[in-house]
Amino acid sequence: MRRKYYHGEGSTIVKKLNSAEALENPSYKDSLAELLYQLADDDFILAYRGSEWLGLAPHIEEDVAFSSINQDTMGHAAMYYQLLEDLGEGSVDALAHVRTPEQRRNAILLEMANGPGDYLREPDYDWAFAVVRHYFYTAAKKIKINSMKNSSYQPLSETAVKISMELYYHQLHWKTWFEQLMLAGGEARSRMEQAITIVMDDFGGLLSLGNKGAEIVRHDLIDSEEILQKRWKEAMKPVFNSVNLQIPTRFPMKHGDGRNGVHTDDLTKAISTLGEVYHFDPAASW
């Protein structure tokens, strides 16, 4: 069922639904929940991966800045989980901590460990990978957020507006790191290029909407994968040009599509760690 109403030549107005109206349409509700799981799980797992850098970032100022970004990102995940709770999907805490890896909908790229070792024991993390992953993800997230400002689901549209205000600073932070390291030459440039190859091998998963993508788009919840990919390339092309790098033309998913429940052992280990406090005391607030 389309909810597009046309007002004048070339203009489109999308009718907004509230939670009660969404629950009246099973197909709409299922598509909405699927998208919300993707959004929430992406932010949830990447906020955790970012938090592992606490005390390990290149300098103390970056420790503070990165921690702030991770707190914001976890807050965004909580917003999406709250929208799912409002749809009757379960409590926010349970959605974050009880679901199995197979039930998660995050992109595989975001669950990948920062590097060998553990953040508490002999971590051998790759800062170049962290910069590229967070920058490319934040740019993709901004594209999605801009699209969802026009979402047919009113609460999601309003949430997108709130998140957008914080994303400007996140994107600027990672853009600065990306350009400085790429233009530094030598080992910095070499390691950044290696990180770009690793990130792009699974970058398609970030802009994927999974097996239910057609229904998500049909219900005007977000733009299509093709449109999202095109906008990401348009947004990133000036930055790639500034560092003398060719913009990627393909969006592969080397290790599979996390939107469809395909994941790695990295996610299993991360979820186990993230849920330790909750499972010790389910009444605790995360």
Rank of each mutant, 00 (worst) to 15 (best):
T176H: 11
P116W: 04
Q194C: 09
W174C: 00
M182D: 09
A184S: 13
Q171Y: 10
G185A: 07
K144R: 14
E122P: 07
G204C: 08
S152V: 00
Q154H: 11
E111K: 06
Y168H: 13
Y125N: 09
Q180M: 09
L120H: 14
E166A: 12
K212F: 05
N146C: 10
L209Y: 09
E122Q: 14
I163C: 00
A130Q: 11
L206A: 04
E122C: 10
D118L: 14
T159N: 10
I198C: 04
V217A: 03
W174K: 01
Y135R: 08
G204H: 05
A188Y: 09
Y137A: 04
G213D: 07
L209F: 10
A113D: 15
R218V: 01
M148A: 02
I145W: 01
Y168W: 08
E215P: 05
A188S: 12
D118Q: 12
E215D: 15
P155M: 01
S208A: 11
G205H: 02
P155T: 02
L172P: 03
R218H: 14
E187N: 12
D201G: 07
E193K: 08
K141A: 06
V199S: 04
V131S: 01
D201F: 07
Y135P: 05
A214N: 10
F178Y: 13
Q194A: 15
S151H: 02
Y125K: 09
W177G: 03
A128Y: 03
F129N: 13
Y135M: 14
S152M: 01
M200Q: 14
I163F: 00
L181W: 13
G186M: 08
M112R: 14
V161K: 09
S157H: 00
I145K: 04
E158A: 09
I145G: 04
Y153I: 03
A139P: 08
E122N: 15
E179D: 06
I143P: 00
K144F: 12
K149F: 02
L181D: 09
S164G: 15
S151L: 02
H173E: 05
R121L: 15
R133S: 03
E193V: 08
K175H: 13
W177P: 02
L181S: 06
D126W: 09
R218K: 13
H134I: 03
K141C: 06
G117F: 05
Q154L: 14
L120W: 12
I145H: 01
T176N: 08
S151M: 00
M165G: 01
V217S: 03
W174V: 00
K142N: 08
K142E: 08
R121G: 08
A184C: 06
I198V: 12
G205Q: 01
T159S: 04
N146F: 10
M148K: 00
K162S: 07
L209M: 08
I196W: 03
Y135L: 13
E158L: 06
Y137V: 05
V131R: 00
N146K: 15
G210T: 04
G213E: 04
S147P: 01
A139E: 13
V161F: 07
K162Y: 12
E166Q: 04
M200V: 05
H173N: 04
R189S: 13
N146A: 12
